[in-house]
Design a protein around this nucleic acid. Structure first.
Lengths: 198, 198
DNA sequence: TAAGTTTGTTACTGAGTAGTAACAAAACGT
DNA sequence: ACGTTTTGTTACTACTCAGTAACAAACTTA
């Protein structure tokens, strides 16, 4: 009998494979609902390969969130880049793209809010990441509403953030069929118009 | 040695004690994070007393949600009742009261969205309850925006729903310190004014 | 080729999970 | 008082979880 081969995967590659599996499962199923074993199986790897890269499940969660954070800002930049130096169109575009994503079958809302829901303890490490991310979002919106020349950039920024978070939340319940999400771009347009007027 | 007494609690009373404990724990800690044993301990009761009233943990969750549903409509009615036959003030009042609650230390967002986050499976029984509740909310808003005489009652209703869900979400990250939530009543006022104007 | 390092594999620990069986004690109906 | 129903208590099943120990196999460097 010939012995079966045992191909090896270097740690860099292994880390990516594991994170890919973790990302899909954590986002789709939720954190508490997904065991490390489930991630191991999905990744087609070994449990020790996970714990040699990540010291704990919490560590894995943080890596997952960091990755999602990068994705968010990448999408943000993409929407912004479609209309250089035109804040109004940039903001509308962002919400149009968001609405597009939010009506996708795979969409499961904002992963940061989702994590916050599952980890109520305010001093838990994952919460700090959520909080810092939300602050960066606020700053980004505020910067755009200021560039827009809104009469009250701060209030407008918060309005947009609420609408964004509302869109995320709505997708959780209605999914592909949300009439509210389909209206989001038009709603944002109206809000922007009013904010510039006076 | 005298034997310790064993005072008994009738099932109706027991059910309420259990639900009180479940409500606090489920809402504060999340569903998956709370074990039936934890609820039993919190209620100061026995495990069998729980499983004789509720056939499963899912059953308990459904009872918890039904109770929260009642609370929501009670709060809704209270806000509405403060300004009889004045839709504009009724809506503003609802958001003012919501903002008040949302900046409370104990507030942990919308329990229905929270449940949806923890139960992604769309055919899970708890999801049906979430969905039906969202639909009732939509109808209630639509009825008020229609009474208001908005030029586009449907769009306004969805705008308000997004703002409401955004408020819930925001409280999860910023809690007591949310500048966005403090601005909500003013934001809603502006949105309403614009919706009536043309 | 030889020694050291990294990865794969198996088996395990200890703790927690939802849910149940069996019986004892209390309350209730008659 | 007596039998029935309801409730309290203990102990249990079968399972899942995060995390680890120990060793074997593969790769790397010298």
């Amino acid at each position: 009998m010939t012995e079966a081969k045992r191909p090896r995967v270097p740690r860099e590659k292994a880390q990516e494979i594991i994170l890919n599996a973790a990302e899909e499962l954590f986002y789709q199923e939720g954190i508490h609902a997904v065991s490390v074993d489930a991630i191991v199986e999905r990744a087609g790897m070994n449990k020790m390969s996970v714990y040699r890269q990540f010291s704990s499940k919490t560590d894995l969660i943080l890596a997952y969130m960091t990755r999602k954070q990068d994705v968010f800002w990448q999408e943000w930049e993409e929407s912004i880049a479609k209309h250089p130096k035109r804040p109004r169109e940039q903001i509308i575009q962002f919400f149009a793209d968001l609405a597009e994503r939010a009506t996708n079958e795979q969409f499961r809302g904002c992963c940061f809010i989702n994590v916050a829901v599952e980890f109520p303890d305010p001093i838990h490490p994952v919460r700090e990441l959520v909080c810092s991310h939300q602050k960066r979002i606020r700053d980004a919106f505020l910067e755009r509403t200021t560039a827009l020349g809104a009469s009250n950039p701060c209030e407008l920024a918060y309005t947009l953030i609420l609408l964004m978070e509302g869109t995320y939340a709505d997708s959780q319940t209605y999914g592909t069929d949300s009439a509210a999400i389909r209206m989001v771009p038009a709603i944002v347009e109206k809000v922007l118009d009013q904010a510039i007027q006076n």
